[in-house]
Amino acid sequence: MRTGFQSTFQTAIAVAKMEWRLEWRQGHQLASVALFAVASVYVAFQSSDHETSTGAWTAMLWLVYLFSGFTAVGRLFDRERTATRQYLRWTVEPLGLILGKLAHAILTTTGLTALVLATFVLFLGWPSGLEQAGKPGLLVLGAWLGGLSVTTTLVFVTAVASQVQSAGAALSAVLGLPLLLPQIILVTRLTRGALLGTPWNTLGELPLFLAALSVGTSILACILFPYIWRA
């Protein structure tokens, strides 16, 4: 018998690996998320004029990210609804399962952040009046951390919503959007500051705050997940 910690960790890795393999095997799901993100960026591009202010730019970026995030994470527990995967309930420890799902969500987020940010800059360019971002590194780091903190919360919300048989996509949105407000407030302030090159002393704590929020929501999700999973 292995120790609890070790077995949990191995379960997590196994779940993440399985998720990842399935994701690539059923490539259309990844592709649909990517397509959704790019199409949203293009809609943002078409609906804005060429004089996008920093505030509007940031708002559009995070709206696009938010909805892409919902589509990407929203199907995270879809497989567990089908009868074929029902055995996971009996064989896999809940903590390992959620850790695996979180790991998978973090990978997806990284890819999604890169995709959204790259296509957004490609289509819309920088906000009017800016030659380029004041702090490009911070912009990318902030987008990634913001994406992480959004995703970890969404993993929890999706887990809750997946247990409701009659739930549509609207339920995750209703449950999730108010919970995502602190993350959105922090990350939009950070993005705007990074674009305008605001000095570090006013900006420095924001990445830390976002990282803490990601870790905090992950821990909370891990603590509460066994109660969601218990059938």
Partner: peptide, 9 residues
């Protein structure tokens, strides 16, 4: 169970 989980979060 689920509403309690959501309420705590």
């Amino acid at each position: 169970r689920l509403s309690a989980v959501y309420n705590v979060f």
